[in-house]
Simulated scan of single mutants.
Amino acid sequence: MRRDVRILLLGEAQVGKTSLILSLVGEEFPEEVPPRAEEITIPADVTPEKVPTHIVDYSEAEQTDEELRQEIHKANVVCVVYDVSEEATIEKIRTKWIPLVNGGSTRGPRVPIILVGNKSDLRPGSSMEAVLPIMSQFPEIETCVECSAKNLRNISELFYYAQKAVLHPTAPLYDPEAKRVTSCQPG
């Protein structure tokens, strides 16, 4: 069993990455949002799986491409955040973020990805129709969660799914590309 989990939040500017983190920690929507949240460690005793969880924010404005590559390399799971009311941020999942996370991956299994549709309070209905083709194209996507940092909707669930993708991965057991169960080697 892992001793800790490192979750990295990526996505276009203004999709709400920092707001999601601050809403989780403060249990209310932040009045003022900085360009980037400091790395936050959630102690083991308050997580469902009882492991310390590190949540890392990414800001294109404040970090270099090299810093981003280093963060991706250190991450156990990546949450790609998009704005459910902005079609362009959904398209960037396929064209920019997933290739960036796993495109140059030579380190064995791909990093699990959770798609996070934020700002669900701004759009009636669901964005799932738009992301389902992306989910079927990339087997490393574990799940998709729609949430609202503003309404505190599904925020703890999003981080729970991210933790679960690391602690109880489907990847070593089931190879979605080959569509078969694989042998399980301890990691």
Rank of each mutant, 00 (worst) to 15 (best):
1 M>V: 11
5 V>H: 06
5 V>M: 09
6 R>N: 12
6 R>K: 15
7 I>D: 04
8 L>V: 11
8 L>A: 08
9 L>R: 06
12 E>H: 09
13 A>E: 07
15 V>N: 06
15 V>F: 10
18 T>Q: 05
22 L>Y: 04
25 V>S: 04
29 F>R: 01
30 P>D: 05
31 E>P: 03
31 E>C: 00
33 V>Y: 09
33 V>T: 15
35 P>M: 07
35 P>A: 10
38 E>M: 00
40 I>M: 13
40 I>N: 05
43 P>L: 11
44 A>R: 12
45 D>S: 09
45 D>K: 05
45 D>R: 07
47 T>R: 03
48 P>N: 11
48 P>T: 11
51 V>G: 04
51 V>N: 07
52 P>T: 08
54 H>V: 13
54 H>P: 00
54 H>F: 14
60 E>T: 13
62 E>P: 01
63 Q>P: 00
66 E>K: 14
68 L>A: 10
69 R>N: 04
71 E>Y: 12
71 E>T: 10
71 E>A: 15
71 E>D: 12
73 H>T: 07
73 H>I: 00
74 K>N: 12
78 V>S: 02
79 C>H: 01
79 C>A: 15
84 V>F: 01
84 V>N: 02
85 S>Y: 04
85 S>V: 11
86 E>R: 13
88 A>T: 12
90 I>C: 07
90 I>W: 04
93 I>M: 01
94 R>C: 00
96 K>R: 08
97 W>A: 01
98 I>G: 00
98 I>K: 00
98 I>C: 01
99 P>T: 03
101 V>P: 02
103 G>W: 02
106 T>L: 08
107 R>N: 13
108 G>Q: 08
108 G>S: 06
108 G>P: 08
109 P>A: 10
111 V>F: 02
112 P>R: 04
112 P>A: 08
115 L>N: 03
116 V>L: 07
116 V>I: 04
116 V>Q: 00
117 G>S: 03
117 G>L: 06
119 K>I: 08
120 S>E: 08
120 S>Q: 14
120 S>V: 11
121 D>H: 09
122 L>A: 12
126 S>K: 14
127 S>N: 06
128 M>R: 11
129 E>L: 09
130 A>F: 03
130 A>K: 15
131 V>E: 01
132 L>W: 10
134 I>V: 14
134 I>G: 05
134 I>W: 03
137 Q>L: 12
137 Q>K: 15
138 F>H: 09
139 P>L: 03
139 P>Y: 09
139 P>E: 02
140 E>C: 10
141 I>K: 03
143 T>E: 13
143 T>P: 00
144 C>V: 12
144 C>Q: 02
151 N>K: 15
151 N>M: 14
152 L>A: 08
153 R>G: 01
154 N>T: 05
155 I>R: 05
156 S>I: 01
157 E>H: 11
157 E>F: 04
159 F>M: 09
160 Y>W: 14
161 Y>S: 07
161 Y>N: 09
165 A>K: 04
166 V>T: 15
166 V>D: 01
172 P>F: 06
173 L>T: 12
175 D>R: 04
176 P>D: 09
177 E>S: 12
178 A>L: 14
178 A>I: 02
179 K>M: 12
179 K>P: 00
179 K>R: 15
180 R>T: 14
180 R>V: 11
181 V>G: 00
182 T>S: 10
184 C>T: 09
184 C>D: 04
